[in-house]
Amino acid sequence: MILPVVKLGTLALRTICKPIANRLKKEAGLHPRFRQFIINIAQANHRFTTTVQRHIYGHATNVAIRPLDEEKAVQAAADLIGELFVFTVAAAAVTFEVQRSSRSEARKEEMRIRELQEMKQKDEEIARKLNFLNRNWKSWNNLSKNEGLLAFSTSGMAMC
């Protein structure tokens, strides 16, 4: 019963995080200090991706990279923040699901181990009872041989 509720909650969380990410993107460029911070992030990201692309395509990497204009930098950083938010929520949901699943598997394994231990205990108890019965049977057999009961019973059967 709880599994569908957890799955539904995870889906709802992912669905809700998209508008939140859009709101973050919208509000990101309004605060002056935060705006400057995200512009710096966007410029650093632009330099990194441009350098990687140049390296991949075999172009010169020591060439100066033109910075983005302010509005493009704000938009790029806002998009990055929105995507990071969505990714973080998705990663948290997956992590939660994996942990829940591993706890469930651990409980199942613990139950299997407990059942196996119970079966071993029952097996040992049956072995002890069998050993006890075997010893009693041997002692009764020896007693009957010593007292001649076996010979009497076999001779009595021969007469019948």
Rank of each mutant, 00 (worst) to 15 (best):
H55Y: 12
V6G: 02
Q36D: 11
Q53G: 11
T154E: 13
N146L: 13
L116H: 12
A127D: 11
I16Y: 04
K72R: 07
S104Y: 06
P19A: 06
A28H: 02
F87N: 01
K25N: 02
Q53L: 10
K18Q: 10
N141F: 10
L30R: 09
T61W: 02
A127Q: 14
T50G: 03
A127P: 00
G9K: 00
G156M: 12
F87A: 06
K122C: 04
N136R: 15
A73P: 02
H31A: 08
N142C: 06
E105V: 09
L24S: 05
I20G: 01
N136W: 15
I56Q: 01
D79V: 00
R14G: 06
E118I: 13
A90T: 04
N134Y: 09
N146C: 11
S101T: 00
K138W: 08
I41N: 09
T50K: 03
M157Q: 14
E70G: 04
G156K: 13
M159T: 12
E110F: 07
A12C: 01
S139Y: 14
K138L: 14
V89G: 02
G156R: 13
L30P: 04
V52C: 14
E105K: 11
N62W: 12
H46Y: 13
R14M: 05
H59Q: 04
I126D: 07
I65V: 11
L8M: 08
E71Y: 04
L13Q: 03
M1H: 03
R107G: 02
F87W: 00
A21P: 00
V94W: 00
N22L: 14
S102L: 11
R54M: 07
N131V: 11
S139A: 15
G29D: 03
A73Q: 05
P19M: 08
E124I: 12
E124G: 05
H59E: 10
R35S: 07
A21W: 02
H31M: 05
E71G: 01
L11W: 10
Q53Y: 09
S101K: 00
A73E: 07
N134T: 15
L11Q: 09
D79Y: 01
G148N: 06
E147H: 14
A106E: 10
V5L: 13
G58L: 00
L8I: 06
D79L: 05
C17N: 03
H46T: 08
L24C: 06
L130G: 02
A28V: 01
K18T: 11
R112T: 13
W140H: 15
S139V: 14
R54Y: 04
I65C: 09
G82M: 04
W140L: 15
I39W: 03
T51L: 11
K7S: 09
R35D: 08
E71R: 06
T15R: 05
E147W: 15
E110V: 07
N136P: 09
Q117V: 14
E118H: 10
N136L: 15
E97N: 00
G29H: 01
S153G: 07
G148M: 09
K120H: 14
S144M: 13
R23Y: 09
I20F: 12
R103E: 03
N40H: 13
R47V: 08
E70T: 05
A28Y: 01
P19K: 10
R114W: 07
A90L: 00
V6I: 12
E118S: 11
K129R: 11
S102V: 10
T88D: 01
W137Q: 15
A106K: 11
R112C: 09
I81G: 02
D123F: 14
L11I: 03
K120R: 15
R107D: 07
I65A: 06
